[in-house]
Design a binder for these strands. Structure first.
Lengths: 120, 120
DNA sequence: AACAACATTAGAGTATGCTCTATAGTTGAT
DNA sequence: ATCAACTATAGAGCATACTCTAATGTTGTT
């Protein structure tokens, strides 16, 4: 599929898709047999990747981190061991985020109590 | 205390402290009885606020959101009811973040399994 | 052939959250 | 009095992650 279809299927603008492509997160293929244009073609895996990018952004991963994860997932440039290391590292950072959110939740509940008891 | 002491006590640079002050997150007081300078003085509450700001940034709250929370906590400009609404809203967004992180964790564990079983 | 709707690239512009520089004045120890 | 170490303000610069504009070319329908 071409970029417009990809955009419609994922809800991500063509501008942003091109930005992600420049950033190395996704990769379209040009059809060498077609000489009249240099349109990029995208496959189903790209849709999966873009959906993953959206989710990964929500949890606070940077483009660079997302790139690492996608490479650990869909790339041949790492060994099995390296892929596992990258993924474990990201899992640890998720645990950390989780912990921080729990702490913040406690803090906000404390604020609520302070408000209720006119302590601030 | 003056800004330098505040900076040392919180580990936040004077530049960043001034940035937070401009952004309305904290507020120093000038001593009107001293006419030779216009130095700002900060109290213990400002330390608490700065510590809160650091924690709140880690969980992904924006400066604007942090401002709202600090106002709900330490400001007279909202009613009890409004304060509670703001805090509840932020608690809900924390729940959302938590959910997203759990999903992402599942996803990364799936990637690990895919790697292990040579499915990618 | 005309024309809307698509495609490409390069690069400018925007928002957020700092981070640093420049300039100028103040304080406190020697 | 001097001087290091502080203070303030204004504004420039930077990194991240888009977002948009401009210029130019292609495709497919009428």
């Amino acid at each position: 599929m071409l970029i417009n279809e990809l955009s419609k299927k994922t809800g991500i603008s063509t501008h942003t898709i091109r930005f992600y492509e420049k950033s190395g997160l996704i990769e379209g293929k040009q059809d060498v047999s077609v000489k009249s244009n240099n349109y990029f073609h995208y496959d189903e895996v790209t849709i999966e990747k873009l959906e993953f990018i959206s989710d990964a952004k929500s949890v606070g991963f940077t483009i660079k981190e997302i790139g690492q994860i996608i490479d650990a997932w869909y790339n041949r440039k790492y060994t099995k061991k390296q892929k596992n290391e990258i993924l474990d590292e990201k899992l640890i950072s998720l645990e950390q985020k989780m912990k921080e959110i729990k702490e913040m939740k406690k803090q906000l509940l404390q604020f609520k109590e302070d408000v209720m008891k006119d302590r601030c």
